[in-house]
């Protein structure tokens, strides 16, 4: 369970870790748009260089990103096969019996692979350097204008942060119950269908009962501390933009501008 890399916060210290979550979320959106602009190889190179520098600054190893990307490899291969058989435009690169591979089929797939790789790197960069609670705090602040339209921004952010807060707890709980049931002879990996169902039941039932109990305790604890949904609240940690946040926002804006120029002007 501890091997899940995608979306996991890596608790080390770097400039990127210390950046304002709002700046990081904004940068994520800008770069995400840039990735989907048809800016060609130069565009990809530009964004790729930016992300690699980001990884270096955040002291994350590229291996981590690749590990997160691994599960998608099969899907990519599948896509390549479908593209080979369906895309019949561009130059004919390879022909053998009924298999004809056209340049566009390969290039299209490559485009998608690169886009996905960039996206995975981008999101990993955000989640690995930002604590889940900071992330929701940032989201809440960014959503604030929507409150004028009667969108319950605070409640949404509270729900997200509670959900995120309890992911590790539930994973821990799952591990503990799995270990306890393994000690009672449950085999989660092998066995007949009937045994598998019994194994899953022995995990799910206690997990649900624990989760409900936790929810109850949390609700009581929140009420005991006077929580009122939607009430005006102050924060212990105020988000204030620093120099580095402006740098991050300006850089990502420049990247977006660059790709727009590459895509539509040149």
């Amino acid at each position: 369970m501890n091997n899940i890399v995608f979306g996991k916060y890596i608790p080390i210290d770097s400039v990127l870790h210390r950046c304002d979550p709002r700046a990081k979320i904004t940068a994520l959106f800008l770069i995400l748009i840039a990735i989907f602009l048809p800016a060609g190889w130069y565009g990809f190179a530009l964004i790729g260089a930016f992300l690699v520098i980001g990884l270096l600054i955040a002291k994350l190893r590229p291996g981590m990103v690749l590990k997160a990307f691994k599960p998608m490899l099969f899907m990519m291969l599948f896509l390549l096969v479908i593209n080979i058989f369906s895309v019949k435009t561009g130059d004919l690169w390879f022909s053998w019996k009924f298999i004809n591979i056209y340049s566009d089929a390969v290039l299209n797939t490559l485009y998608i692979v690169i886009r996905l790789l960039l996206m995975v790197t981008l999101t990993t960069l955000l989640t690995a350097t930002t604590k889940p609670l900071e992330l929701t705090l940032g989201l809440e602040q960014l959503m604030k204008p929507l409150a004028k339209l009667h969108v319950p921004t605070h409640e949404i952010a509270m729900m997200i942060s509670i959900a995120l807060r309890f992911i590790p707890t539930i994973i821990e709980e799952t591990e503990r119950i799995m270990n306890a049931q393994k000690s009672r002879g449950v085999d989660f990996d092998e066995g007949s269908l009937k045994e598998k169902i019994s194994a899953i039941l022995s995990l799910i039932v206690p997990l649900f009962s624990v989760a409900f109990q936790r929810a109850d305790d949390l609700a009581n604890a929140m009420e005991a501390r006077g929580y009122v949904p939607g009430a005006e609240r102050t924060r212990y940690k105020e988000l204030i933009y620093q120099g580095r946040d402006h740098v991050l926002r300006i850089l990502s804006l420049l990247i977006l501008a660059g790709t727009i120029v590459l895509a539509f002007v040149l």
């Binding site: 709980e173 503990r176 119950i177 306890a180 049931q181 009672r184 039941l201 022995s202 799910i204 039932v205 206690p206 009962s209 624990v210």
Partner: peptide
Amino acid sequence: QFSEYQLF
């Protein structure tokens, strides 16, 4: 620890 949570 807290083995009571493993009953199902």
